[in-house]
Design a protein around this nucleic acid. Sequence first.
DNA 1: CGCTTTTGACCCGCGC
DNA 2: GCGCGGGTCAAAAGCG
Length: 311
Amino acid sequence: MDYSSSWVDTSLDLNINPRQRIGVKKDFVTNFMDLGNKQEVQSSGALLEELKRVSAENKKLTEMLTVMCENYNALKTQLVDYMNKNRDKEPSPSRKRKSESSNTNTNNNTIPMTGNSESSSTDEESCKKPREEVIKAKISRVYVKSEPSDTTLVVKDGYQWRKYGQKVTRDNPSPRAYFKCSFAPACPVKKKVQRSIEDQSVLVATYEGEHNHPHPSQMETTSGGSRSLTLGSVPCSASLGSSGPTITLDLTKSKSNIDATNSKPRTETPQVRQFLVEQMASSLTKDPTFTAALAAAISGRMLQQNHTEKW
DNA sequence: CGCTTTTGACCCGCGC
DNA sequence: GCGCGGGTCAAAAGCG
């Protein structure tokens, strides 16, 4: 269940983007060179100072990230507990119509990291609907980027599915495909796949229920190196959109282990680590508040530095 | 031949 | 009660 901090090495080497870093360093070097060659000795000293400072900052950021990860895990644990409590109250599954139609695509950026999550009904909706309708079999929604030309509504998530229907719905011109887990009726999981009405290149897979059998890829993997990026156990990319944080799962990169229950710290390759760090960095840089804070911090530093250098 | 996919028919809840 | 529309069934077709 714990992903991030359990295996994501938070000791960031922030030199993730050599070009950028070189650019920064170059600026420093140029600045110092502008001061004249006579100050070379002093410059190298100052560079060392700068290096120390950057290292310290790096360490500080690492600590902050660690704290963030811990907070995230704590929150996640609470959420899971809350979900489990709700599930205990859940009545036996019925053929009653799902209240999902009221769940428009626009407000659903929730991506279950475990492959399971409750229906993301808003409080508004829960007020409108009777309580027993809100508590349903676990419903999760996954957004998968796919080729717009790809007409097959196939979401490769490692499980085996049997298609049992396809319908054109009223609110979306693209057809909706209905799948049952191949292990049905032993496994009650169903999924619906439909192209997003907003972005035709995005497939929206709605999962209902939980698999009561191990992930098929678990039995066959352990061979070869992992090429796909995995966060926790799920391949994903994170982004901050206007409607809030979004995590897009790229389930087309199969062979990944979706079942997080027995995820173990794995041997992540440097590339994977780098990618993760880049993802985090890009997510943070897209956050206006973060960039503002960062800019303030940097400018503060600069001013402070200029001040001290003058003296 | 057996499994999967396709697709029209049917079921059923909901709103009017 | 009736029509609408989402969800499911099941026979036929496709495929390896």
